[in-house]
């Protein structure tokens, strides 16, 4: 008997795992830096350029997705679940796009120079306004929590399918090659 199990194309899997590593890192740095005195400066100096890289990466991913053929869902994934999977994928794309922009915008509104590395820095995208900064700074925290819980839901759903339903859902995005059966 054969199945239609296929993996996402290599480019999509590579971008997926690169994003995963960067997003988990930046979330960890973000939550640590706001609570740290000794490491604050070092952590912020990584957080800023990493956020910008994620913004670039999510645009590349979105474009790459338009040109890629995606594998079908396993039969165990119901149409309701497909809708949720699709919606949560779009939510993650949106969060990964909006969150760095909010960070960039809030630093602009606070009139900080937005240093990436050495002399490399970003231009401001918003006018100097502390009220705007305050609102965006709050939004940055709320979006970070939302992003974290969306990640937990995504991770939990994949674990459930792979370990309980054992439908090889994980194989679709596995960072290694899985032969079709």
């Amino acid at each position: 008997m054969t199945t239609d199990l296929e993996q996402f194309p290599v480019s999509m899997r590579f971008l997926h795992w690169l994003t995963a590593a960067m997003v988990l890192t930046i979330l960890g740095i973000g939550v640590a830096m706001v609570a740290s005195l000794a490491d604050y400066h070092q952590l912020v100096s990584i957080h800023r350029p990493l956020g910008f890289l994620i913004l670039v990466l999510v645009v590349i991913r979105f474009v790459n997705r338009q040109f890629s053929t995606m594998p079908a869902f396993p039969a165990t994934v119901s149409s309701g679940e497909r809708f949720i999977a699709h919606a949560s994928e779009m939510l993650l794309y949106t969060l990964l796009f909006v969150q760095p922009l909010v960070g960039w915008g809030m630093l602009s509104a606070a009139r900080y120079p937005i240093v990436l590395y050495g002399p490399l820095h970003l231009f401001p995208i918003l006018p100097h306004s502390v009220m705007l900064y305050a609102a965006l700074r709050k939004a940055h925290t709320v979006l970070a929590y939302l992003l974290f819980f969306t990640f937990i839901a995504h991770f939990g759903a994949v674990l459930f399918h792979t370990l309980i339903l054992r439908d090889r859902l994980f194989s679709r995005m596995a960072p290694y090659r899985v032969p079709a059966r």
Partner: peptide
């Protein structure tokens, strides 16, 4: 680093 962190916290609180 501590000054940077605390100034930032003070700035964020008063900004709004």
């Amino acid at each position: 680093s501590a000054r940077s962190a605390v100034y930032s916290q003070s700035f964020t609180r008063r900004a709004g």
